[in-house]
Design a protein around this nucleic acid. Sequence first.
RNA 1: GGUGAGGUGGGUGAGUGGCCGAUACCAGUAGUUUGCUAAACUGCCGAACGGGUCAAACUGUUCCGCGGGUUCGAAUCCCGCCCUCACCGCCA
Length: 423
Amino acid sequence: MLTLQLFRQNKDLILDGLKKKNFKEPEIVEAIISLDEQRRHIQVQNDKIAAENNSAAKNIGILIGQGKKEEAEQIKAEVAGRKEESKEIANKLAALENEQMELLIKLPNLPHSSVPFGKTPEENETVRTGGVRPNLNAKKLPHWELTTQYNLIDFELGNKITGSGFPVYIGKGAKLQRSLISYFLDYNTAAGYGEVYPPFMVNEASAYGTGQLPDKEGQMYHATEDNFYLIPTAEVPVTNLYRDTITAEQDLPIKMTAYTPCFRREAGSYGKDVRGLNRLHQFDKVELVQFTHPDKSYEALEGMVEHVEKLLQSLGFEYRILRLCGGDMSFTSALTYDFEVYSAAQERWLEVSSVSNFESFQTNRCKIRYKNAEGKTQLAHSLNGSSLALPRIMACLLENFQTPEGIVVPEVLRSYFGNDMIN
RNA sequence: GGUGAGGUGGGUGAGUGGCCGAUACCAGUAGUUUGCUAAACUGCCGAACGGGUCAAACUGUUCCGCGGGUUCGAAUCCCGCCCUCACCGCCA
């Protein structure tokens, strides 16, 4: 959520930013500014009446204490006479505040100046590429055949016990998954990210805090009996750990990493994209979350990008890093880098990580703040990124490292996996 | 699931209709004292939204789990909801 101060200070900055994000209703900006003026005007009136009523009530108390009943009754009558009016103004104020909030939460975050213009994924900008594409022979298999051949994942069994998009990892498949999670967490904690293991369900307030509610309600699984939501990403519980808190400036940055499963309804996606491990309803992910000083968030973003890049390098994948264009960015992001890994058997790029700076967009809604040297409370900046999403890493690993003798396990995983081959 | 107790500022915890945005203690912070540390003492120390100001000073309103209600006046009384704790039952 954008801050109201920004509307008063720099309207054009907002309008330009919304344009870059291809936002369709820029007139909302004017509406918010006008509501802000009305609101402040009404608030002055409201405060004045409330102050009068407060002092009248106080006087009544004093008069009654002195036994001057008649005078007290007289003031009572005066206050009663104003009651209608005070109620009306208070209601008006509340209505304006609600209206303003409703408009405010419709506006996406503003893109950073380095974000390219564009509407579709084709207009994303490739920042850099790395790694080597494996040379597979003609008999290369897609991962959904490899998982069957080596008995690593049973998709049919998942269909039976739950439904499509809920694969069952078996034997070495399960162990490889666990190895990846452990490796990612160890890699992150070694870089100073504190490990947390949060709940996989959150309440309404948390879902609202990170922006899943009210707009993206349909994308989450909802346990209606208890009104809990299954988390679509660890970002939700981990960011909310600091909801409504004020930290000391010297405690920033706060760096956390968490492994969680992620649950997504993915309503409406079918077809080739969902084959095998490409798109699931439940998948594992190791996430990074940071809260930083506003002056340091872009530095932190570059640091996270480098961190994830080195992780991909350590696994031996060919990858590319994209800076998303305004139209392809998420609602809440100011700058996003997507990481894609080349899936050599499917012959396509798969997104395995997305690293974003949200600036104060999330922290404003979540009220994640710090106290600066002058003792003033300010919004921190928040960032997050995946390191990494497991299924597509698994898919690429199986496909890219397949040999006639079996699948070669990357060096860095061997101590976790306990073997250098799957065969 | 049953029964009971309770939700107050960063923490502990007082407050059952007006003098309460809230006693006290702890933590924090600034200072005094001090060879250093510690101790002691003194001051400051919640948030949001406004007015005001170049910026301050100053100042208004709101907030005692959340939402309603009663009243001139609510942390305090009434109703609904949420949550926490204890005990019992069940159980990984």
